[in-house]
Design a protein around this nucleic acid. Sequence first.
RNA 1: GUGGAUGUAGCUCAGUUGGAUAGAGCACUGGAUUGUGGCUCCAGUUGUCGGGGGUUCGAAUCCCCUCAUCCACCCCA
Length: 454
Amino acid sequence: MSKTSQDDAPRPRRIEPRTLKGFRDYLPEAMIPREQLIDTARAVYRSYGFSPIDTPALEYLEVLTGKGSEETDRQLYRFVDHGGREVGMRFDLTVPLARFAAQHIGALGTPFKRYHIATVWRGENTQRGRYREFMQCDFDTIGTLSVAADIETGLVIHDLMRAIGIERFTIHVNNRMVLNGLLQKLDLADQATHVLRALDKLAKVGAARVSEELTATAGCSTQQAGEVLRLAELAGDNDQVLQQLGPLVAGNPLGEEGVARLAEILAGVRAAGVDDQRIQLDVSIARGLDYYTGVVFETLLDELPGIGSVCSGGRYDNLAEVYTSQHLPGIGASLGLDRLLAALEELGKIRPVRTPADVLIAYFDKSRLNDYLRLAARLRAAGLGVELYPEPRKLGQQLKYADQRGFRVALVAGPDEFTAGTCQVKNLASGDSSHVSQAGDPPAELVAAIRAAL
RNA sequence: GUGGAUGUAGCUCAGUUGGAUAGAGCACUGGAUUGUGGCUCCAGUUGUCGGGGGUUCGAAUCCCCUCAUCCACCCCA
């Protein structure tokens, strides 16, 4: 028990490592599928000509508070910076887009198509799958009223789902013009917010509860509530629902236009090759009570509808009116990244992997480090992801490491292999292994054997 | 924001009406096995019992506060 001077020195006070409420660390096994999903979204957006943009995480507070309700104001992270400016952290990507468009539309020109994948912050109470820091993956087309942009939004959602590897999904589509037209007709236009809020819960709570809410909160007469709920009774395929919708809005120009536009949208996505099963006219969805004015989309997974919409959006009339006099209509949607990841995990579609590389080269013969480095370099040049184990430990430990991280293939080369000019290719899933020549640059036989095992 | 529940090892959890040294499985490390992972066997490591305060001879256990997580509601994406 010799006391050294070190023991007498004041022990550094340990700070407990912890993450802030509602904020998360992402370990490799969570981050790898997350990055894949983001890469997929980016590729699909780009394939339609949407261009990447970015904006600052922080904005002048007035830019963010100008548009939101008092609800978003309450959730806003805000502070005074060192220069005395009142600033806020963005809580979505739409408000920054509006500011961005108002500021730069002269240079951008219209129509302007952008995607924006970035983190946003809301200081609201946390819940399962809902955090204070989360990512949004938006794409929008602004400056055009064309129905082609509406159709294209549906197509992007469709392609995105399929690119992610989801085959069984349904895009629910509606048009707020139909709802608003009907409300005008029923003389409920000034109660639109309450009516739509109630109607939006139809799938969740059923017609009876919606009817209660309509009379209690929205001040509808029972007759008006009944008329609204006739929407819920519409049944059949898309064409049949369209036909039944006509009489409901007949005589109201807004509603009639809405129905006509829905027909065009459905015809357009069909013409582009979307299976009729995957897009469904659903008159009960309203979404985002304030700014949507036209077509709205929600995407549900057929195998997991309870999780809610994984990709939603719609058309809005005047994106940037609080920032500019220029009229900028737009349409867009956003991929629910966290929700979708949770769904993919629940559906077993995420392979648990902790490495992005497929190949691990065992550091087996201590004196051959340079040979292993050369081999790794040649394989990487051939396009493979290759990790060299950094220490010449027991082979069993290295294989265990490879297995646990999710490598697909281990390469083992010791004195015997180097003498023969070969390399052992071991398939970690099956345990099979074979000896392959490592000659050549690129080492064609070896690359072929590895690719066969992936 | 409202109401409810739960916090014990890296993970999942047990821990009796308050009782002495807080356990199990899995995981991890080493060995059986110095050129081959997953199976088996053996050994070992791992704890501010979420944190603080109180009651008590004695607290993981009871009380208060606090933090975190989960569920429902509200709202929203």
